[in-house]
Write a protein that binds this DNA or RNA. Structure first.
Lengths: 159, 159
DNA sequence: CAGGATAGTTAGGGACCCCTAACTCTGTCA
DNA sequence: TGACAGAGTTAGGGGTCCCTAACTATCCTG
């Protein structure tokens, strides 16, 4: 007997889950229209996704009703959000990328990386942070390194 | 006039491009069967992809003929391969992930990250490598850090 | 309460990507 | 040379995801 299979959520459905999680956090339940705006998608696409999420037991949804996540849905969404934040933090705080570039990249890459790499990335961020407290700021050192490198490149290109 | 649009290659077609690039490098032109094996895909799917790549001017292909890349195709493929290698190198040499896990993750993530982040990642690998030569091996330091952290976690979980 | 604005849904269709089954082509070996 | 094996293709179909257009429900305000 198998009431609920674990069907490897698609990247797209993960995005919907994440959006609902974020929107439902701010208010009480998400609105279809806001999900559509968040994901830059037509409202009708949201309806379809909600039906899929309901079938998988991840979202509480009935036509014209307000949208919340089930317990398993919340768990899954939280994991996606966690990945997202770890990636964004790595891009911003270690690599020194702009927040909005990091945001977009995290959104795409979060579907591609498994727990092994995500775990190490988190660990790495902690390592870099501690290096900062220990007076050997790896992130800052790298930023200097990168600046001088790319500066040299740019000068070369201009010649 | 615009003879050749640049249609944002899909992740799937990028994978085909990469496979052809790698296979054609080893011998003279790739074989459909080997592409199918490399990508774990049916042979008929390869035919479809080849037609798409030909239409985009990226692959030289005619039915039953041998498969090579055009000049623009090679350029694009080289860029994909470059991304792939940078990611894999970061996963292996900085994060200390197993080669095969890194390989798979790089394959998925390479489609998600833009030039800005890839560039910085490359820079970061160089930085870590130099830190090694300078007697302050960031990668090694991190591996120790990660080991002690995950060790502590494991011990905690066992208690 | 009526009617309009807005939100949400359904219907229908397209793009992409993959599959299996059945066919055709090609090269090789007796 | 003829026939077989294996490579490659075509036909047909399924799944996902998205869109527009048109319809329906809901809400709010006069």
């Amino acid at each position: 007997m198998k009431t609920e299979s674990e069907p490897q959520l698609s990247a797209s459905l993960e995005d919907y889950l994440e959006a609902i999680f974020n929107l439902a956090g701010e208010s009480e339940g998400a609105r279809s229209k806001d999900i559509a705006e968040t994901l830059s998608v037509a409202r009708s696409s949201v309806t379809g996704a909600l039906q899929a999420l309901r079938e998988k037991g991840l979202a509480n949804y009935r036509p014209y009703g307000c949208i919340t996540l089930t317990e398993p849905g919340r768990t899954l969404a939280a994991e996606v959000v966690r990945k997202h934040n770890i990636l964004k933090s790595f891009f911003v705080n270690v690599l020194g990328v702009d927040a909005d570039v990091a945001q977009q990249a995290a959104c795409k890459a979060e579907h591609a990386l498994g727990p092994e790499i995500i775990g190490r990335l988190l660990s790495f961020i902690k390592y870099v942070t501690e290096s900062h407290r220990n007076g050997r700021d790896v992130a800052e050192e790298f930023r200097q390194f990168h600046k001088s490198r790319s500066g040299a490149k740019a000068r070369k290109a201009q010649a």
